[in-house]
Amino acid sequence: MSSVPVPTRRQVLALYKQFIKNSNQFNNYNFRQYFLRKSRSTFKESADLKDTVQVTNMFNEAKKELGILKRQAVISQMYTFDKTVVEPTLKLNHTQ
């Protein structure tokens, strides 16, 4: 794995944005909230990492997880269910 370059700050931020964007696309309220919470806390933790090997590993792991998130967000949009009682039905686009 030594051939893989250490991700730059910019790359990490771009990946983080992707996580938030895809988490937001879950139609299911509970999953959406969970992945938003999880994305934020994971990237916050990673900000404190100094060790380049750890940063690289985490980055690669996160890229794999992003794939899962993308696929599952699409599935969540294909099989939609009624909104729960804590979700406003009027606000149509919850991504913003």
Binding site: F81, K83, T84, V85, V86, E87, P88, T89
Partner: peptide, 11 residues
């Protein structure tokens, strides 16, 4: 009281 919200119960 809760019009404007969804109908599916909280699990």
């Amino acid at each position: 009281e809760n019009t404007g919200f969804g109908t599916r119960p909280i699990y």
